[in-house]
């Protein structure tokens, strides 16, 4: 059985995918994961996951370009420039 191994390098950090290995069962997988990804003390913790338990999603349909919940949905630069210009002219008017 193939197991995917995720490794946390230091406490508080996210787990990153480290690689995979083949083992007869969970016990062997646990031992082997420890040897492969921790024998130099390079890991704080490991997640050992049977590959078949992983559900992969790799399609994200956005046909209508709904950009209002993404960075590219907002162009603040031009609006900010205009807003600043208005304040600038107001300040000039008050000073007078």
């Amino acid at each position: 059985m193939i197991y995917e191994i995720f490794r946390q390098e230091r406490k508080g950090q996210p787990f990153h995918h480290a690689g995979s290995l083949e083992a007869a069962n969970h016990d062997f997988a646990e031992q082997y994961a420890k040897e492969f990804y921790g024998r130099r003390g390079e890991s704080e913790a490991l997640w050992v996951v049977p590959r078949e338990a992983i559900i992969e999603v790799d399609e994200f349909v956005d046909e209508l370009k709904r950009n209002y919940h993404r960075v590219d949905g907002y162009s603040l630069k031009e609006k900010l420039r205009r807003a600043r210009e208005r304040v600038g002219s107001a300040l000039v008017a008050r000073d007078r």
């Binding site: 290995l21 083949e22 083992a23 082997y32 040897e35 492969f36």
Partner: peptide, 11 residues
């Protein structure tokens, strides 16, 4: 006998 075991037994 197995590459995984090779690494484990070496340790």
């Amino acid at each position: 006998p197995l590459l995984e075991e090779d690494v484990a037994f070496s340790s």
